[in-house]
Structure formats: C-alpha cells, structure tokens
Simulated scan of single mutants.
Amino acid sequence: MLNPQKKRKECYFAGILAATAAISLLSGCGGGTPSLEEALKKTASYEQTSISSPASDSLGGEWAVIALARSGEQAEDGYYEKYRANLEKRVKEQSGVLSENRYTEYSRAILAARAIGINPADIGGYDLVKPLEDFDSVTAQGLNGAVFALLALNADRADTNGELEQKYLTYIIDQEKPDGGFSLDDSSDTADVDLTAMTLQCLEPYATEEEISAIIDRGMEFLAASQAADGGYEAYGDKSSESVSQVIIALSTYGIDCNKDERFLKNEKGLFDNLMTYYKKDGSFSHIADGDADPMATDQAFCALAAYQRLQTGKNSFYNMSDVK
C-alpha cells in the first residue's frame, strides 16, 4: 500500500428483498444518508468508472473485482474479462511469480479468480494456488499471510480439512492474544481491530468446532469492547473507515447484523451508520472522517457493503464462494 499505516492493514471483506423501502430501513439513518442498496449501487458504479481496467494489484483492481462479483451488482460488459487478461499478462511476464516475499499477492488473485468463476490453478498456464503450499514463505509475512492463504484455499469450500489448511489453521489460532483478539505484531500482547476482524473471517469454515467457536466468541467480544463511544474504531493511530469495514465483514460472516446487534450500537447507531459517515456522494469513501476519497478505503467499504447485503439477502458469506458457477 502507498500509505505505510494502511500497508499494514493488508499485510494485507436467499432472494431479493421485497422492496426498496424495506432495504432502506437497513441504514437506520435519516437526513439523506443513502440506504444499503443505494450505497452499494453507487459504489459499484464509482469503482468501475475509476478502475476501468482492473489490474492484478492490491490497489486498482482485485479488491474491486472481488467486491463487485460478490455484490451481485451488474458488471460492465467485458469488465471481468479485462481483469483476467491483465492477470494473465502479469503472470506470464513474471513467469508465474507474483512476488518473492508477499504471498498475499497469490491469495488475493486466487480470491478474485474464484469470485468471477475462473480456475486460479490455470492462469496463463501457471498454477497460482501452488505457491501457498510453501508454508514458511507464506507465514514469513506473519499472521496476515496465513489468514489470507486460508481464505483463498477455502474459498470454494472444496477441502477445508486438508493437511495444508489445518496447518494454517493451527498457526492462526496459536496467535490469539490474551484479550481475545489478534495482531499483526507477533511479539505484542495487545490485539488490533483489523487483524482480529480478518482472522474471524477466515475461521468461518471451522465455526462448528468447539475450540474454534470459542475463539470466534472471544474475538467478537474483543471487537465489541474495542468500539469507541462514537461507534467507530481506531487502528494504527487513526479512526478509519477501513477498520469499520473489516468489522462489518466479520459480523456479516457469522450472521450478525452490524446495525442491529446491541453489542455494536452506540447512541442507537450501528456500524453501517458509522461507515456511511465516510461516504462521498459519488460512491467513494474516505480513510478518515472528512477526508478525501481514498482508493483503499473505497475498496474495503465496497467489500463491507457487499458482505452486509449478502447477509440481508440470505446468501453465502462474502468469502464463501461455493455459490459461484
């Protein structure tokens, strides 16, 4: 990422509602704040306009592709084909090596491929899943690398109990902090909001296991306890929309309505309400309150809106891509 603080955040997300009026109730806001449906449509349009040829990169491509595909919003003609062509071009030019040390590059590409229904094991003649078999290289990036590897490996829900998946799962749960959360800093005893939310997202396939269920419960308690009085979250020195977005994705993963669950309500406002304080009229989002439109903030908010919409309409969670055909 271009911003060092934000770079740490990636190292480094059953039918249509009866009527638009019903959807508008999801926001819990008045005074011109758009409904979930309205915001999702506007952000989908903004992302496709500002990212006309999505690249294989952490900014300017893959997260927008993933969010758009999972949102159910209409993609412009040829949009996903442009991404596939750009991904294949990069893979071929780099002889299948997306990065020597940041294996989240593979995980993100796998998630994008799964989201649009293409096989990540055959991209321009290269298998993008195979590098994730290199456990040591993936975990050299820390917890973030393991979390996104597990999300990528389990995206199609084909073999969540494979030996490699279990190895990553063990590594991840061993990183739990005393306060019930997780952190990018292995040496710290203090958890952070973003990594806790991301970790909870990757644990979904194992939620019925007693040990994992307890870890998820403790993580949710940490996220509730970490919320500020105004309903937002602070991470890496800033109250940011990205932190709110990641928590919304985590809650939506487990069927928790971020705008109704009492643990996450402040002054009768929920997390969707809080996220919309960063919303711009053109569909973009800012990183901090009253800030300018920010690409990473917009990508993550788009993922959050899609995740929340999927909860509201009874669809698979954001990263459960077994429904992609």
Rank of each mutant, 00 (worst) to 15 (best):
T170V: 11
W63R: 12
Q246K: 11
S50C: 13
K177P: 01
L251N: 05
G232T: 07
Y319P: 06
Y80E: 04
E38M: 09
V244Y: 05
P120M: 07
G180N: 09
L251G: 07
A155T: 11
L143K: 03
L36W: 01
A307Q: 03
G30F: 15
Q300H: 11
G231Q: 05
E88L: 11
E268V: 04
K9E: 10
V138Y: 02
Y279A: 10
G78C: 12
D179F: 07
L203E: 01
S58N: 09
A121F: 13
E262S: 15
P4C: 06
F318T: 11
A39T: 05
L164K: 14
S24Y: 01
A228H: 13
Q5A: 14
G291L: 04
D299Y: 14
S322L: 03
T33K: 10
L200Y: 04
S187H: 11
S188L: 05
V91M: 09
L271S: 09
L40K: 12
I16S: 12
V129E: 10
T43G: 13
Q166L: 11
Y83A: 01
N144H: 06
L26W: 04
L59I: 01
G145I: 01
N3K: 05
E10S: 10
A197I: 00
Q227P: 02
G142Q: 03
D136C: 04
D127F: 02
L2W: 08
Q175Y: 06
I256W: 02
E133I: 11
L271Y: 07
E204N: 04
T253Q: 14
L265N: 04
D292K: 03
R90Y: 14
G237D: 02
M220R: 05
T298K: 01
T33M: 12
T253I: 00
D159R: 00
E88C: 06
K92Y: 07
S35Q: 04
I256D: 07
A229R: 12
K6C: 09
C11H: 14
K260I: 09
A55P: 03
L40Q: 06
T139K: 08
